[in-house]
Design a protein around this nucleic acid. Structure first.
Lengths: 234, 234
DNA sequence: GAGCTTGCCTTACGTCGTAAGGCCAACCAT
DNA sequence: ATGGTTGGCCTTACGACGTAAGGCAAGCTC
């Protein structure tokens, strides 16, 4: 239908950008386990070895993914900060970190990937440079700013180290959960008591008893409060 | 030589414990990449498939490793706290976390492994129960204690999320480092300034410009100070 | 002694990343 | 036009990996 002048170009010529974009889409949809060279190639209508003309191997592909996410975070954070001019340093940082968090929620695989990479791609540094700018502009010395970066840890990138995993859903019915709870209470009394206490007066138990957003911001405030006392000037 | 009564038992019968111990030794020595079923079996003088009579597959092996490290941390933390009776909650927690840190320094692969596991083995929960005990005993409500656990994140397990990686040694000579520094300063002025500032007045430049121990304790103090204000009683 | 269990081994399958080289269309200078 | 060169994609193949299926031999119970 329509003009045949352009005929059908059987496919556009494949490139690093196209490969990365396709990889991100694939991982968003099916998780990191689905990201193999063969599978990604198939997704692009190509054979596996063809990818090596545009990417320096699997490791390079993963670095590219991290860089892409870092770029997404950087622009989101920069825009968030620009949208609210004239606020104090901690509000600016909070905006940055929460912007980063929305990006991470779009790419749930990113935290694990980022912390599994043996080296940090360049894009991540660019993001940290922006945080430093905010800190220094807010009156912090480079020494304290440096420590602040370490203190923020992964929070700066929008995610918190999850030590309590969801345990893969499981425990569909209440009786199994109850049994698990009893077993828990025997060996781990305080953990059991905490779960019990938090579950009872939870405002929204459907979301599970850990509201990540609340925890995230609580930790941020702890750190911001502490840092405020180390600030040089006003 | 000597009595042949016992003959030579060609090897003792292999067990989950022996397999885990050997796996830890292997990973301590050569890193996670060296840990394959075949290699571990060879280390035990056995064929790969024999491991499956004692371990439920590779994933189970990794969970076993995490559990073993968690147990090591738990006992180290418990002992550290027991050795200093009558101190306040934050000192007790600091002792626990620093004890965990010494264990993690013995097993540098453990942080990455722990955060890459899809689920958390039981031993980790036991450790967290001890932390909760300390917090509650120190006058915290379960609600705040819960948030404190999230705030501590990986610090409670003795390691900090490393965002700045060592970049694989590299840059052997000063001129290459200098060139990298100049390139850095153009695009990332604040990062460059921070590195410069921290390098110049570093007391011990040989250790690199990030003293992890100092950063670790700095962050702990930030969090402890913040939590103190949320404590219920004395 | 027969039968069963236990502990280890052998073989084999499918998947992974990727090294080596082949094919073919597009482009260039002649 | 034409022969050479280049670059994008494909084919084939190798050596890992985790592990399913089954074999074989020693020691136990009755």
């Amino acid at each position: 239908m329509g003009s045949r002048m352009e005929a059908r170009k059987p496919r556009e010529p494949l490139s690093r950008e196209r490969a990365l974009a396709s990889a991100i889409a694939l991982v968003d949809a099916e998780g990191m386990v689905a990201l193999t060279m063969r599978r990604l190639a198939a997704e692009l209508g190509v054979e596996a070895m063809s990818l090596y003309h545009h990417l320096p191997g699997k490791a390079g592909l993963l670095d590219g993914l991290v860089d892409a996410v870092a770029a997404e975070i950087t622009s989101a954070a920069e825009q968030a900060e620009a949208d609210a001019p004239g606020v104090d340093w901690r509000t600016r940082l909070r905006l940055r970190f929460l912007a980063a968090r929305t990006v991470m929620l779009r790419h749930p695989w990113a935290p694990a990937l980022l912390s599994s990479r043996p080296t940090v791609p360049a894009g991540v540094y660019a993001y940290y440079d922006g945080i430093l700018a905010t800190l220094v502009d807010g009156g912090f010395s480079y020494r304290i700013a440096h420590r602040a970066l370490h203190a923020f840890g992964s929070l700066a990138l929008g995610f918190a180290q999850e030590v309590f995993r969801p345990d893969a859903g499981g425990e569909a019915d209440a009786e199994a959960a109850e049994a698990a709870m009893v077993a828990l209470a025997e060996r781990l009394p305080h953990l059991a008591a905490m779960v019990a206490a938090e579950t009872h007066d939870a405002t929204d138990p459907t979301l599970g008893w850990c509201d990540s957003q609340t925890e995230f911001e609580f930790t941020l405030d702890l750190l911001f409060d502490g840092l405020e006392r180390h600030r040089s000037s006003a």
